[in-house]
Design a protein around this nucleic acid. Structure first.
Length: 946
RNA sequence: GCGGAUGUGGCGUAAUGGUAGCCGCGCCAGACUUAGGAUCUGGUGGCGAGAGCCGUGGGGGUUCGAGUCCCCCCAUCCGCACCA
């Protein structure tokens, strides 16, 4: 039989499907292994070429683990809620569910063609009500929980209510939006609404007015990770800042655990670093600065602006965060962010107009404008002064947008001598600069002569009273002790990680299980979930600017209005890996039994672009479920591999300016040319198919060519893959041309999975040849079966076992590219030996079945097996075939290889030396000299040092 | 600016501190073919006629021995970025 990949692949794909070969069930007799791909968003463009790379790698690993006796869970599904389907719906009026269904089917078709071992019985989509029921359920649990910092875990809100009724806000160490203080009496006397308002300050899913990234073009709010350089990730539209009432997840409560957990997982260092930076832990101090000359009896000042730490209790004051308490004597001014609530209260009448103008200007600036003009210094003096609580000096308070509202407290102490931004600000507004850190006590210089702030990471304090001469680290500790004593501050930790805004003003997302009574949100009982997405006449916001769900008829619960917002894209993808464990359970998210067995994902494969989004949210989600006793593992993804980004490899033809003549790449330097993208599908190994090019577009019909060596060679460049660059490679075309097995092996052969690389089909022929060669080990030129039962030679066994060892090692370390090379070497050796013996070829089939499952399955059945090769065991490596009696050593002189000599492997230096010294060749290289030393590394090298 | 990664033939890449360039593409030569984008064989880092010399971004160092370990520099890519 000929190697007909189309027939073979279609045949086995059908059989696998019919027999449910990849169906997985809990099997307590076997160890589990959970391999997961980041499930795709089914876009209209179909499975893009970057996807299969990771999928193939994980599929090979799944199949390998199965062969090694593991019960492997390898599911797939779809992240189906999202903006593109909805944008399309707005344009065409077609319901996003229909678009999604269509795209999902297309994805499935493409995936099936590549021969993956997914258990499709576990498939679900995040837009299935059966699934998002549990997304909503988790939201309710978050709503009903708060974070206890002492216990370091989430707790039911009822415990908090109990605490309030007994102790008020006394002795509370919990995550909250702002510190509020009340007594048990005040709590018990408060009405329902007031109590709900207070609780909102602590819930893990809470509703609050917040500055958001508002994208007018998309008509929705976006999370921080969905905005890059002031533009939306989806669509690239400008993003503004806006104050809106939104659902927010208190992710920040988990900042420390998210950080610490990174030490327990096997992720790449770079990915861990990205997460660490995103979490952005900084140690420092919170310090209260009292205000100078403010009428504390004025009505504006009641409660809100009073200091809330014992040293400044009932005194007008504000809190700042600093990582450098040791520089506190160098503070020459304070800066508030333009959103700071205190501004209007402290501004003096003379400065009022100017401050208001500045604040209005700053607030209306888009995020993009602000970021583009980071270098520009702007700000305004409030007329007010604060008192440096340590030095007692009066210092002016300014407002500037270089202080951010959502980091720290939105207020800073400025130390211009040692901070570049404070320095620029001081220079611009002519504020004093005072050096407080120097290499040593007598190396103080004149700040007037400086052009930039002084580095202060090391050195000693100067001009700093009682900390003078102390090194900066101990000085920091001394100041923290001091402010502690004074009751005006404390050492603390700040995180860059912010709470995640969870509301989207869109249609195509999970509805919130929330209704409003008396302006406060209440959850819909869990036994009434899911709250299904309602039908609407249009997918746009209403005329009054309400989200699309406001269009739904009777969007109420027991007469109360339900939430109009929907959840963001990451809601559904945050806990999906857990649902695969028990996807059809309609009583629970997943059963305890399933979770106890499958636990967490052992191997997770996907792109690094999710580092600050999905991979943070998922970890948060899982940790929360862990806290409430659902998930039995604290980290969801034990080992994570990022497949490298696939770039495009574009081809170019070079048109001679002003003509319709094209010159081959090697000759283009002699002409003035314009490079033009040529479709990579009409270029093979950089050689242009001239006829196809002429037919490609009318303007090329009469093209003339200047060839080199009779060929037109195209130039190439690595660029982003895009339609307009004609460099998009569709996996389907390659499957059609070479078959899935070749595609799978070729993608692995390209290079290490983690490495970014251009998509380049030059070289796929080599893998295709290998598969054909492999097939010919079993068949003769006429296509007849030639496998026999002869006993293999020792050399043949050696080839086999060498390969078994290599493949096993490479599989374990995800070095699939070198494994493919090993298969090629093995096939070459067997072909050379004309080895067509069953005892060699049968185990080889098992080895290769993870990479090329179709051809392996076909040969397996031709070998007479009736069970699928999927259930075969990985062959056992036998060391005894590797043993050699002799080893040919490279003999080096001073590290330079000069000759080769063979010795029994058991020989040591003692036995080797006399033979070595007697050798003629060695004598020649010694040239009469006596060796200083001879080094023998068994089975490696002999080095003679002169 | 801060953090991370990478740098080896014409190309993709490979080398537990031990013969640098395995495997493949491409290229060259040959065999079989009416033909080949089929198959097979041999060659293919640079310089040199040769013995040999030089070669892993550049410069130092550790070592009997460095692509690999350490220090400095350069280049490219990625992430964060007024984060106090």
């Amino acid at each position: 039989m000929e190697y007909n990949f189309q027939e073979i692949e279609a045949k086995w794909q059908k059989i696998w499907k019919e027999k449910k070969v990849y169906k997985t069930e809990i099997d307590p007799q076997k160890p589990k292994y959970y391999v997961l791909d980041m499930f795709p968003y089914p876009s209209g463009a179909g499975l893009h070429v970057g996807h299969p790379l990771g999928y193939i790698a994980s599929d090979i690993y799944s199949r390998f683990k199965r062969q090694k006796g593991f019960n492997v869970l390898h599911p797939m599904g779809y992240d189906a809620f999202g903006l593109p389907a909805e944008q399309y719906a707005i344009q065409t009026g077609q319901h996003p569910a229909i678009t999604t269904e269509k795209n999902v089917n297309r994805y499935r078709e493409q995936l099936d063609k590549i021969g993956f071992s997914y258990d499709w019985d576990r498939e679900f989509r995040t837009c299935d009500p059966d699934y998002y029921k549990w997304t909503q359920w988790t939201f309710i649990q978050l709503f009903n929980s708060y974070y206890d910092n002492s216990a370091d875990k989430a707790m039911p809100i009822s415990a908090l209510v109990e605490h309030f009724s007994k102790n008020g806000s006394e002795d509370l160490n919990v995550a909250c939006s702002e510190e509020i203080f009340f007594t048990a009496e005040e709590w018990n006397a408060a009405d329902e609404k007031r109590q709900q308002e207070i609780l909102m300050n602590y819930r893990l899913a809470y509703l609050a007015d917040t500055w958001v990234n508002w994208c007018p073009e998309l008509g929705t709010v976006l999370a921080n990770d969905e905005v890059v350089n002031g533009l939306s990730v989806r669509g690239g539209f400008p993003v503004e800042r806006k104050l809106m009432r939104q659902w927010i997840l208190r992710v920040s409560a988990y900042a420390e655990r998210l950080l610490k957990g990174l030490d327990k997982v096997e992720w790449t260092d770079s990915l861990k670093e990205i997460q660490r930076n995103w979490i952005g832990r900084s140690e420092g101090a919170a310090v209260w600065f009292p205000l100078a000359k403010v009428d504390a009896e004025a009505p504006d000042w009641k409660d809100v602006y009073m200091g809330q730490w014992e040293g400044v209790q009932n005194e007008p004051a504000f809190e700042i965060f600093t990582t450098r308490p040791d520089t506190i004597y160098g503070v020459t001014f304070m800066v508030l962010c333009p959103e700071h609530e205190m501004i209007s209260a402290i501004t003096t009448p003379e400065q009022k107009a100017e401050v208001e103008e500045y604040v209005t200007w700053a607030k209306n600036r888009s995020e993009r404008e602000r970021q583009a003009e980071v270098k520009k210094v702007s700000g305004v003096f409030t007329g007010a002064f604060a008192v440096n609580p340590i030095s007692g000096e009066n210092i002016p308070i300014w407002v500037s947008d270089y202080v951010l509202s959502d980091y720290g407290t939105g207020a800073i102490m400025a130390v211009p001598a040692h901070d570049s931004r404070d320095f620029a600000f001081a220079k611009h507004f002519n504020l004093p600069i005072l050096q407080v850190v120097a290499p040593s006590l007598d190396e103080v210089s004149d700040p007037e002569t400086w052009t930039e702030s002084l580095d202060s990471k090391t050195g000693v304090c100067v001009n700093s009273d009682f900390i003078n001469g102390m090194d900066v680290k101990s000085a920091g500790k001394a100041i923290i002790n001091k402010i502690n004593e004074m009751g005006i501050g404390y050492g603390t930790v700040n995180y860059r990680l912010r709470d995640a805004i969870f509301s989207r003003q869109r249609y195509w997302g999970e509805p919130f299980p929330i209704y409003y009574k008396d302006g406060m949100p209440y959850t819909i009982p869990v036994d009434e979930l899911p709250v299904e997405l309602p039908e609407v006449d249009k997918f746009q916001p209403t005329e009054t600017g309400e989200p699309p769900l406001a269009r739904a008829k009777d969007w109420t619960y027991k007469g109360y209005q339900k939430e109009y917002n929907t959840m963001p894209g990451f809601a559904g993808s945050s806990g999906y890996y857990l649902r695969y464990m028990d996807p059809h359970n309609d009583k629970e998210y997943f059963s305890k039994e399933a979770n106890q067995y499958w636990r967490n994902v052992d191997l997770y494969v996907g792109g690094a672009e999710h580092a600050t989004g999905h991979l943070i949210y998922s970890r948060f989600w899982n940790k929360f479920l862990f806290d409430i006793g659902l998930s039995c593992e604290e980290e969801p993804f034990h080992k994570l591999i990022n497949q490298g980004m696939i770039q495009g490899r574009s081809n170019f033809v070079y048109r001679i300016v002003g003509t319709n003549k094209y010159v081959s790449a090697g000759l283009k330097k002699d002409y003035e040319v314009t490079p033009i993208h040529a479709d990579i599908n009409i270029v093979h190994n950089d050689v242009l198919d001239i006829d196809a090019f002429r037919k490609w577009m009318p303007e090329f019909e009469d093209a003339e060519f200047i060839l080199e060596d009779g060929k037109y060679i195209c130039g190439w460049e690595v660029e982003k893959m895009s339609k307009s660059k004609y460099n998009v490679q569709n996996p389907d075309d390659l499957v059609e041309k070479y078959g899935a097995d070749t595609l799978r092996m070729y993608e692995m052969f390209l290079g290490p999975v983690e490495m970014a690389k251009p998509w380049d089909t030059n070289g796929i022929e080599g893998v295709f040849r290998f598969i054909k060669k492999f097939w010919r080990l079993f068949h003769n030129a006429e296509g007849e079966w030639i496998v026999n039962d002869d006993e293999p030679t020792r050399a043949e066994y050696k080839t086999l076992h060498k390969t078994i060892k290599k493949i096993e090692e490479d599989n374990e370390k995800f070095s699939f590219n070198t494994a493919v090379s090993a298969f090629m070497i093995c096939a070459n050796e067997l072909a050379d030996a004309k080895c067509n013996k069953r005892k060699i070829l049968e185990p080889l089939c098992i080895l290769i079945s993870a990479y090329a499952p179709h051809v392996a399955e076909e040969l397996w059945s031709l070998l007479g097996h009736t069970d699928s090769i999927v259930n075969a065991s990985f062959p056992v490596y036998d060391e005894s075939y590797m043993q050699e009696s002799d080893f040919t050593y490279p003999v080096s002189f001073n590290g330079k290889m000069r000759l080769k000599m063979t010795f029994p492997v058991t020989y040591t230096l003692k036995e080797i030396e006399p033979i070595l010294m007697a050798d003629e060749g060695v004598q020649k290289w010694l040239d009469g000299k006596t060796p200083k030393k001879i080094i023998v590394v068994p089975k490696r090298i002999i080095n003679i040092v002169l």
